[in-house]
Design a protein around this nucleic acid. Structure first.
Lengths: 228, 228
DNA sequence: ACCTGAACACCGTTCAAGT
DNA sequence: ACCTGAACACCGTTCAAGT
């Protein structure tokens, strides 16, 4: 926040305050949020932080480490509010929806966790799911498989959202025209060979991601209740 | 298959038969299968096909196009056998398991479809799911959401398998020690703060991916049957 | 039409050298 | 300890030139 004016000076302005891992991660998050995954390059990061490569590699192992830590940071704040003193069904919907919304707001986080689902940052999520399944009466032996299935579903949706966001960023479409394009392609499918796909094209163009996500969670919950 | 012997000759042996898109895709698939996603570089491809960059770009738009076509090719063969004249529940398990197994054998395909779930190659899969849901008595309006949820689940598992395979390829672990490492980390979670995760560590180390996948499908099917 | 391969514009990462 | 930035070893892609 200090040497803003020094822009075309001798060489690089050289920051007065010292760098920290937190500062680096924060800058990375902002770059990822505003420009997507491809916007985070080491070069761009050195420019933004007016520093050199070595400074960054001193605080962070490599780019993968940086991405993972950035994703952890984003998700860390989300998993706090959800507690289990309401109806477990409602709490489970809220918990999964919280993760959905966080990833919807930061699509690159979805891609990252889909790559590394065992990250410590997801521990709180697994724990929350597991406890609520317990509260729902799912027997201990089935709880692990059920939790895994639910997490996989959430991350599957997350990965898809991330990829949609990336495709949209590539062209300059907004969400609506993007979906309409996909729907048009589905509608072109041969009605004799692909009756379902052809018929579903309309719904594809109109559907709401968030609502459809919740329908999936509800199907899961309904199925899980048969495990009791 | 002709000029094998000419290895250290004048410059490059220059192929006698002409290149084709099919040949390129086939070579890409073999490289991806044996060396993972990072093994497919344009350079390596020119060497393997003893040709130049331009030849490849003449048959294929760019690397993304090549990857997508390779994934399509792998999946094309899989979706054939599954028909619906048995019990729809059994057929749905077989259909999803077919995709699971194909992706398990070619993890990079999972990563690719998780990125591009609207690829035409998945049309047959959507169609099969949609029809079987119809046979199960799921009403038309709910069928689209249910199919989407199921596909998301399958692709979520697929993406995770792909990432596990990549992590394992990085180090030299086999599946078993890889899972045991993850299980050890889960076991180290604070039992007071993370009782579920701590208790689930044992199952994480012992579980079978394929079986757990099917449990998830069954939960889905059970949940879906409540939509009737 | 089909192919060659040098050249270009990028990457992430390293490391001797500075403070 | 913390940082600099030139250099290195790669990428994917282009394009004038060849057949």
């Amino acid at each position: 926040m200090v040497n803003r004016t020094a822009k075309g000076s001798a060489r690089s302005p050289r920051r007065t305050d010292s760098l920290s891992r937190e500062l680096i991660i924060q800058a990375a998050i902002e770059m990822l949020d505003s420009g997507g995954e491809k916007a985070l390059t080491l070069r761009a990061l050195t420019v933004r932080l007016s520093t050199g490569y070595g400074a960054i590699y001193h605080h962070v192992k490599d780019k993968g480490d940086l991405l993972a830590r950035a994703a952890d940071e984003v998700i860390a704040g989300v998993m706090s509010g959800a507690v289990a003193d309401t109806d477990p069904r409602t709490a489970l919907r809220a918990l999964t929806l919280g993760l959905f919304d966080a990833i919807d707001a930061h699509p690159w986080v979805g891609a990252e966790f889909s790559r590394q689902p065992w990250r410590p940052a997801l521990l709180d999520f697994y724990e929350g799911v597991g406890r609520l399944l317990d509260a729902l009466g799912v027997p201990e032996k089935a709880r692990f498989d059920a939790a895994g299935a639910l997490v996989n579903y959430v991350l599957g949706v997350a990965a898809q959202n991330a990829s949609n966001a990336r495709l949209r960023a590539g062209s300059d479409m907004d969400r609506k025209t993007f979906l309409e394009n996909a729907a048009t392609r589905w509608a072109q499918a041969d009605p004799d060979r692909y009756p379902f796909v052809h018929a579903a094209a309309t719904q594809l163009g109109e559907h709401d991601d968030r609502e459809q996500f919740l329908v999936g969670v509800d199907i899961f919950l309904a199925g899980i209740s048969t495990l009791g």
